[in-house]
């Protein structure tokens, strides 16, 4: 029996290999549909957290929305290379705006 994957990372380049070394299963995908399928498969396997690199995160807004209201899996954007494109911070900003009406950060 295969071990249950609890934490996974999805990304487009080989930088995600590093996560493999610390016990986070890395899945390399090339385009949005492949990322979609991987997330779907992981969600069915009861994966808890899926980190997604920003370049892929931007491509799959529908999938993110689909899992928004379920507790698991948690989809979290992480910077893909050495530079962050601040998608995570933008998400926080959007949440604040939705919740209290104005942006306070």
């Amino acid at each position: 029996m295969e071990k249950i994957i609890e934490v996974a990372v999805i990304g487009a380049d080989e930088t995600i290999l590093l996560y493999n070394a610390v016990g986070i299963r890395a899945f390399s995908v090339q385009d949005a549909s492949e990322a979609d399928k991987t997330i779907f498969k992981l969600a069915n396997q009861k994966c808890k957290i899926i980190y997604i690199t920003e370049s892929i995160y931007e491509l799959i807004p529908e999938t993110i929305e689909k899992y928004q209201f379920s507790t698991f899996p948690v989809l979290i954007p992480i910077p893909s290379g050495t530079k962050s494109r601040a998608i995570g911070l933008k998400k926080i900003k959007k949440n604040v705006e939705n919740a209290i009406g104005i942006d306070i950060f």
């Binding site: 934490v7 590093l18 996560y19 070394a21 610390v22 016990g23 986070i24 957290i49 980190y51 928004q68 209201f69 507790t71 948690v74 979290i76 992480i78 995570g88 998400k91 926080i92 949440n95 604040v96 939705n98 919740a99 209290i100």
Partner: peptide, 27 residues
Amino acid sequence: DLSRLLPKMIELASLEKSCDMLASEIE
């Protein structure tokens, strides 16, 4: 370094999910 960062990344995941859910509930 990544091993050391791991607990923080996990905490971030649970915090962000909580924020997401709270924000949509507030709306």
